[in-house]
Amino acid sequence: MTSSAFMYLFLAAAVAGGVGMLALRHPIHAAVSLLGTMLCLAAAYAMLGAHLMAVFQVIIYAGAIMVLVVYIIMLLDLGSDDARAFRSVKVFVGIPAATVLVSVLARLAWHRAAGTEPRPGLLSSIGDPAAAALPEGFGTVASIGRDLLGRYVVPFEVTSVLLLAGIVGAVYLTGRDSAGLKAQGNAVGEGKGTGDGGQAEGAPAGGEEFAA
């Protein structure tokens, strides 16, 4: 029972973090809020038997990705969004759509969990499974490692190609200026490149040079 209560607590906290990210004007506040969500989710993963995933969630998401985001926010020295942040026609479509969606899903989840049906239909044939008993070593590094290099080795390798592409893309996109600047003998040209709009306009030539 306690574990259930904690579960609800973590999930509610995750949702609260999401709301915070959505609502807070300053990007740093939003980022920290999202960080909270991710940590809560890591706890939820752990309670769901996915210990390795919980660890990855903390290391990769909270540790790497969010730090990168926060770093960029600070690097670009971004302030709060102005008051126009929410004053848009998008609000009039987005908020009602979200409300309707959430309320419908809530009703569905409620009925499903309670074992009642809003009305008989196809969904009822799926049923709400009781949690299965976990096999030995479920979610451990060893068993997941075996899966990754066994059954799922091809997707695993393809993922590495994806990572490589991401790295190349990121380097290409940000490295254009420094490549151009290197040609001028200035190795530490980042600040200069940022400040110099004209340099950025002339970037394609440098980009090609880099690609070559």
């Binding site: 026609v89 987005g94 759509a97």
Partner: peptide
């Protein structure tokens, strides 16, 4: 792009509603 995303969200909502109504 956000407006496009907005319409997508609206469409998704409609799709979910229709799916639930049918099933």
């Amino acid at each position: 792009a956000q407006v496009y995303a907005m319409w997508m969200t609206g469409g998704l909502t409609v799709a979910v509603l229709v799916t639930i109504a049918i099933l």
